[in-house]
């Protein structure tokens, strides 16, 4: 029967080389016996259409051959939970590291804002590369574990030898009121923190990133910023660096759920220092004229008004932060008092 021969030939192509002759011989014997049975039932040879129906019922050659193959997973169920965990961690850390790198490198090397956009657009390809490498490593592990199970040690956390005492302690909410940060939220804060730092560092060389087209108006205006703004700028940079270091440390130590009270106080104290410097500056000069001799008569009053407004604004901001600081300190003292009281 030509059709059966063609069918078996097609099956053979998908079988493992070492066993294909043996499998095909067996399959042929079984199918020929079945064919004989069918034809003796019909008392005539099967028509081409009947043969096609019969073979169609058995299945496509590739599927029939696949049943003879050893079942192989790219990443099997035994290591999939570990793979999934490692994949998420690798991608989160890749995102953090990439953000740090672009936040540091771009302000040093870039000459225009498009580099920031290009760096951001590269994020998906970076993440896909990391995911591909993690998948390749785990696929290799699966391959080795399937062929040499006796040589593969059980994966920690998935074997029966784990100890319940190794479970991490319960994650407590520090004051019972505020909801703790989730892990993705903590990671997102770090990523955006680094991106913000990069943007901040671009400002001195490229004021366009903060002022937009207004920078051209500012450059052509008769005004200029006083020098103390440079000190203020670097204080803001320092505050962001401290925050990022603290957040990274929290993430590495596994304590990202809630900022320590001391951290919250530090975040209020650090900006107070440059703000106090600003409000105590001599004569409250924040904006000055580029050419006083030429423009004093025309723009002198405008400069005075601007300086008074900025001073008032700075006073309000300082007062708000000082009140928040006092509140934090009060809460800290109250918590300490309650703990102290409970222990006696």
């Amino acid at each position: 029967m030509e059709l059966l021969d063609r069918y078996l030939q097609a099956v053979k192509k998908f079988l493992p080389l070492r066993r294909q002759d043996d499998i095909i011989a067996e399959l042929r014997a079984n199918m020929e016996a079945q064919l004989e049975d069918k034809e003796s039932e019909l008392t005539r040879p099967m028509t081409i259409g009947e043969q096609e129906d019969w073979l169609r019922k058995i299945g496509p050659p590739m599927m029939v051959a696949a049943r003879y193959q050893t079942q192989q997973y790219l990443i099997g169920p035994s290591i999939f939970p570990v793979y999934w965990y490692v994949l998420r961690m690798a991608m989160l850390w890749a995102l953090i590291i990439y953000s740090v790198v672009i936040a540091v490198i771009i302000p040093i090397t870039t000459s225009n804002g498009s580099s920031v956009v290009e760096a951001l657009l590269r994020i998906p390809s970076v993440l896909m590369t990391v995911a591909a490498w993690v998948t390749v490593v785990f696929a290799a592990l699966e391959f080795v574990a399937a062929r040499y199970p006796e040589k593969c040690p059980p994966i920690a956390g998935l074997s029966g030898n784990w100890s319940p005492s190794s479970l991490p302690p319960l994650e407590k909410e520090s004051d019972g009121k505020r909801k703790g940060r989730s892990y993705p939220q903590a990671v997102a804060e770090i990523v955006f923190g680094f991106l913000f730092l990069g943007w901040l560092l671009l400002i001195p060389r490229h004021p366009f990133v903060i002022m937009g087209p207004g920078v051209y108006f500012w450059r052509s205006s008769p005004f200029q910023l006083a020098d103390m703004w440079i000190t203020f700028f670097w204080w803001i940079v320092a505050l962001n660096v401290v925050q990022l270091i603290w957040r990274c440390t929290d993430l590495l130590r596994g304590t990202w759920q809630q900022s320590a009270r001391l951290q919250q106080i530090a975040y209020k104290v650090i900006p107070l220092i440059p703000l106090i410097q600003l409000i105590t500056v001599r004569d409250h000069v924040y904006v000055a004229l580029k050419h006083p001799a030429l423009d004093q008569l025309r723009h002198g009053n405008s400069v005075d008004t601007i300086n008074k407004s900025v001073h008032m604004g700075l006073l309000v901001v300082t007062a708000i932060i000082a009140i928040q600081l006092a509140f934090e300190c009060g809460q800290l003292a109250w918590d300490w008092y309650q703990k102290h009281d409970a222990s006696h």
Binding site: E26, A29, N30, M31, D37, V64, R67
Partner: peptide, 18 residues
Amino acid sequence: GYTLRKDLAANGLDIDES
């Protein structure tokens, strides 16, 4: 193979060749 399949089917347990 084939007679085994026939015996199983005769006992009510149909099973594909593949």
